[in-house]
Computed example of a mutant assay.
Amino acid sequence: MKIAIFTDTFDPDINGVARTLKRFTDYLGKQNISFKIFAPKSQSDEYVTSHIHRFKSLSFFLYPECRLAFPNLSQVKSELQDFSPDLIHVATPFNIGLCGAYYAKKLNIPLVGSYHTDFDHYLQFYNMEFLSKLLWRYMNWFHRPFKKIFVPSNDTLEHLKRHGFKNLELWGRGVDCNLYHPYYEKKAVRKQYGIQKKYLLTYVGRLAPEKDVKTLLAIAKSIPAYINEYIQWVIIGDGPMREELENEAPENMMFTGYLRDEKLAEIYAASDVFVFPSSTETFGNVVLEALASGTPVICANAGGVKHIIQEGITGYLCQSGNAQAFTDSILHLIHHVQVRDQMGIEGRKYAVSQKWDTIFEQLLWQYMNVIEEPKQQKFA
């Protein structure tokens, strides 16, 4: 099997799409399955390989981690003809995704796609709801030729069904439980970041309106003073709202910027509670990473994350934007250490069952069905 992947974001970009695709291509490499990636040049191209063709690009204003690239069409056509893929997988609906869909039709190559980001939900955070109908018209047109559209959660699948999408298949997410685990030396992590307070609360993600970080700030400010003096917040991530948040943040809130790999895993493991108010997630990789690290999660009862958390068992689900509900849940876990510890155990147990290899094997079976379909129709 030969697979060509067209995406407007890829490693070393730090977002769910890029990280998922990097893990998938790592898996393909281990399985000796040939692949070629078409992606934009990023600001720091650390990942250099003959498997990837990069194009000049500019950041997209609504989602800077996705870049608007300027693919050389003749080069793309030439590389595709030389590579001769059995299937094209388009992961994003921007310029490179359009390029992949165009050549799938032109060269008669089976086409599938994956839906990672609910841009429609983002519009409300940027006062651009008036674009919603136009956006859905475009998204329906763009995805219509795909033989399969892979979505990360049942919530996203039902959401797209309501908007008339066809050929939807669930493509879940796993977690690397060898990297994310509870067994890091917590005292060493605290010492490294100068954390002396008793309780460590953590957020990981973009610092942008669609992640509802305003609610995060409201949560931090609404915790009663008698317990707040024992709490340290660590905010991991970056984005357009970082400066504003740092200016408004309480004294016990620390901003680290993006962390990766072991440095990120150590913070998860050292945390007492992971707090994630975003209501726009199609899945929520960071939530699963926190669970794998033995850390209970308090998150919005919305989007893909609501399917990851078992209410009262691995964490709590709160009404989106309701800072008081989040605060009450945080206080409950701080005051009940046995509940917190048991949730950490149950979260780890759940995460260990979410294996990437199993998820990728199922995706390859779906690929094979799409590739074989024209042959079956021919002999029907």
Rank of each mutant, 00 (worst) to 15 (best):
M1D: 11
F6E: 04
T7E: 03
F10Q: 06
Q31V: 07
K36S: 01
K36W: 02
I37Y: 09
A39D: 12
S42A: 10
D45R: 03
D45K: 06
S50T: 02
I52N: 02
H53P: 01
H53E: 15
F55T: 00
S59H: 09
L62H: 07
L62V: 04
V76N: 00
Q81F: 00
D82K: 12
D86I: 02
H89K: 10
I96L: 13
A104Q: 09
K106Y: 10
P110W: 12
G113W: 05
S114V: 00
S114W: 02
N127A: 12
M128W: 07
M128A: 15
M128L: 15
W136F: 15
M139A: 04
F150E: 08
V151C: 06
K161T: 10
N167H: 13
W171K: 13
E185D: 15
K186Q: 13
V189I: 12
Y199N: 09
R206W: 05
L207Q: 09
D212T: 03
K214L: 13
A218H: 14
A218T: 12
I219R: 01
K221W: 07
S222N: 15
S222R: 14
P224M: 04
Y226I: 10
N228A: 15
I235E: 03
R242F: 07
M254G: 05
A270K: 02
F274Q: 08
T280K: 04
F283R: 03
G284I: 01
S293P: 13
P296S: 11
A302S: 15
G304H: 07
I308G: 04
I313T: 12
Y316V: 00
L317Y: 11
G321C: 12
F326E: 01
I334C: 12
V339R: 06
R348Q: 09
R348D: 08
Y350W: 04
K355V: 14
W356V: 07
K375T: 09
A380C: 09
